[in-house]
Structures are given as C-alpha cells and as structure tokens.
C-alpha cells in the first residue's frame, strides 16, 4: 500500500493560515474538556491487581511467621541474584528452617519470577510502589523488614490478612494436589484449575473446561 499524498493547500488556505487555525481550534476544544493528568502526591493512583511493587514475605496468620520452606527456587530463578537465603536442617525431622532471607531491592529488576515459582506463596510483590529512600540500607530488606512490608501493605490496602490471596501470586507449574496442605491458603473456587487466570494449569486438557466457561 503506497502512502497517500496529502492534497496541496489552496492559495486561500495558505493566506488564511487555515491549518494553523485548525490546530488552534483543537487546542481550544481541549481547553474545555476534563484533564487526563493526575496531581500525583495528592491524588494517588491505585495500581492494578498483580502490580509488581515492593517485596514482602506473607505473614502466616496462624504462626505469625513467614511460610517459607527454604526450597531456594526463588534464589535460583532470580535473574539479578538479589535474594540471599541461609537455612539449616532441623535435627530429627529434616525440616528446613530459614535463618536469613534477604532481598536487595535496589538490585531487583521486578520480573516477578520469585513470586511465580514460590510453591508456598511466601514471597510476593505487593502493589505498594512508594518506597524511595535517602540511603541504600533502607531498601535492603531482611526477613523482619519483609514481614513488616506485608503488614504495612495489609494495613494500607485494607485487605483481610487471613483471606486475601492475590491470584497473580499463585504458584505455577505445581499441581495443587502435590502442595503441602497446611501451607496452602484457601482460595476462591474461580482461582483454581481452569478458572485460574494465571498459569501453567491452563493447559490443553483444561481448555475444554475453559471453552465451556466461555460458552456459559
């Protein structure tokens, strides 16, 4: 398709500055319409669900601690290698106990891989986006800070810390049946299996269920 040449201006249009007036008319029209900008610090914008912002370790409402099991999947997948985990194995049971869980937020590139691979929904990226600081130490999150981030997020957003689960934090590539039962948070029905907007479970075997859903 050849691009179409514009018709030449007539003499009258040239003399009357026709195209300039047209532009001015558009500007004038915009003067009376609603502004599209936002007065930022006064008017805050609610980010969309699943926005990748400040890191947090979800505080388990029962134990009051993080539910991290030190599987190291997040630290392995992290492209910028900003997650540091230290753990030891409990004698007898062999259960891993997390000693340290640090995230260097200034190195993080916010890809969200850590939240995506976490099998127990422990590390999440919250929707909070205001955390600039005057020094680098403030944005070096250790375990306590990460848990505090979660508390702050729950307080700020007004979510119920027991019931709230963001569908975008759901782990993928892990069958729900294989997950450790007590560690799994109860999620609404529409976030499991085919209805889940996120995820590997939405594969071809699920597509029939999904197609039914579409028809309905």
């Amino acid at each position: 398709m050849l691009i179409q040449p514009r018709p030449k201006r007539s003499l009258l249009e040239t003399v009357l500055l026709f195209e300039i007036l047209q532009g001015m008319a558009l500007t004038l029209k915009r003067l009376f319409s609603k502004p599209v900008t936002r007065q930022y610090p006064d008017e805050k914008r609610q980010p969309f669900l699943g926005f990748r912002g400040k890191h947090a370790l979800v505080r388990d409402p029962q134990t009051g601690e993080s539910s991290c099991v030190a599987c190291l999947r997040c630290a392995t997948v992290c492209p910028s290698q900003c997650i540091y985990i230290r753990y030891h194995e409990e004698e007898g049971s062999g259960r891993r106990v997390v000693d340290r869980y640090d995230i260097e937020a200034l190195r993080c590139i916010y890809c969200g891989y850590c939240a995506e691979v976490c099998p127990v929904n422990a590390i999440v990226l919250t929707e909070s986006y205001e955390y600039s600081a005057y020094d680098r130490q403030t944005n070096y999150f250790d375990r306590g800070r990460l848990l505090n981030n979660w508390d702050a997020f729950v307080k700020e957003s007004g979510h119920d810390p027991v019931a709230y689960v963001n569908p975008f934090w759901r782990p993928r590539g892990v069958d729900e049946a294989t997950l450790a039962g007590p560690r799994r948070r109860k999620v609404p029905e529409e976030w499991t299996r085919a209805g889940q907007p996120v995820g590997r479970l939405c594969r071809s075997q699920d597509s029939e269920v999904l197609a039914e859903g579409v028809q309905r």
């Binding site: 891989y113 995506e116 691979v117 993928r172 590539g173 939405c202 594969r203 071809s204 699920d206």
Partner: peptide, 11 residues
C-alpha cells in the same frame, strides 16, 4: 484454549 504449550519448560 491453552495459553502455555504442554512442553513448555519450567521457569
């Protein structure tokens, strides 16, 4: 339909 291939690698 599906949004991920069946033989897609894990992250």
């Amino acid at each position: 339909g599906a949004i991920v291939a069946d033989n897609a690698p894990d992250l």
